[in-house]
Nucleic acid binder design. Sequence first.
DNA 1: AAGTGGTCTAGACCACTTA
DNA 2: AAGTGGTCTAGACCACTTG
Lengths: 237, 237
Amino acid sequence: MLNDPLYIQIIRDIQGKIDTGQYPSDTFIPSESELQDIYMVSRTTVRRAISELINAGYLTIVKGVGTKVMPSRLITTPKELISFTQLMRNQGMRPDARMLAIERVKATPDLQKTLEYPGELIEIARLRTADDTPISINTSYLPSDLLVKHDPTIFRTRVSLYEVLEKDFNIKVAVTEDTYSAINANASQAKLLSIRKGDPLLMIERTAFNQKNRPIEYSIIFLRADRYRHTITLRAN
Amino acid sequence: MLNDPLYIQIIRDIQGKIDTGQYPSDTFIPSESELQDIYMVSRTTVRRAISELINAGYLTIVKGVGTKVMPSRLITTPKELISFTQLMRNQGMRPDARMLAIERVKATPDLQKTLEYPGELIEIARLRTADDTPISINTSYLPSDLLVKHDPTIFRTRVSLYEVLEKDFNIKVAVTEDTYSAINANASQAKLLSIRKGDPLLMIERTAFNQKNRPIEYSIIFLRADRYRHTITLRAN
DNA sequence: AAGTGGTCTAGACCACTTA
DNA sequence: AAGTGGTCTAGACCACTTG
């Protein structure tokens, strides 16, 4: 923490002051030259920190006037990539998962193309719950060459698949492409999710990429529309 | 253009070289010191330009090695805010809209709260089509005090509501909050969209804000799930 | 060892807002 | 006129990757 770059430390400090209300919503934070004095750094470093906080949606600049704290409504939903475990935790729910299957499977032509990998895949199917209510059926496919370090059963040890990838396999998801659609539940989906056949499901297909732009996961998620809504905040360029 | 800041001109130039293939996908662009010589600017200015291109998804940095052009797959789906007109054009379709209603309405309590406006609203309901196939029913509510400059019928003159707001009212959308859900079509929705009652619809509720964080539009959109998929690319922080 | 990007400084001049 | 952020320069030292 103490060895982190100065601008990171400044970001953390300002973020903390926003969160604790020392810099309330819609008020101006100290000017850049004041921040230079506070943190004893150059203006470039102050501006670097402010620039990232603007990018993250915490601050906004009014030309010729000053730098203002964004209304918290717009702070709380960052446009960052987020895992479903995190999403549910953010909504104050206790996420869990029941493993339906962990198997080695052959890739279909579509999956081969999407994952750019001709070999075997690991299929992980899970029923996700929040506060013990079934929320979604989540089926992931991962190239097996990425997962040689441990037995696939390691995915039983944690609720978040992305946490297993990061902590046990050192694989970090950098980019996702999410496609939203809607379908009617079929009989088996309805049974698993405790709803009726024909009820609406939000369907999300996600392809995840690592830092080197290699596809590392394709997943298809069926979410109960009555229990779950997915919100995303976007900013114009 | 010539009076634009240097870093903007550099961004445009590099973007152009990526688009025309002079800097092909997955190859390294010149190093920062080479770019200093090319553009005759300081390293700070070069880095400013590169930083924004990384943010926009065009470039990626490999530590200690160089700066690489992102694969075009990941460039083509920017995470920017985008209008539905643009979205359909991007998919190679010809978007159009049939006006269903332009009316002054009283705000429901929910709408009053969402739009933070107690007065009358302008309701604009439209059937959106792509290549003459009905795609979505789009109902927007806007505070009437924003629209005094012209008669509301001006919304008939353009296909894109956001274009009318920007060009005729000088109102720019800066941030949107989109919530995704799914429902089954009711009888009237099914009729308008040429589908059957009970067929799945993707529902998107959007609240749009201007640069000053004032809510300027609430819209609810019902999309035919069989004809339309909505893709978003997200990056980790 | 050489080259790359990562961080940081100390200045400068400008356009914009407010009084 | 004074204060704000917007842009830019010319240096410096560092950590990381590769030959």
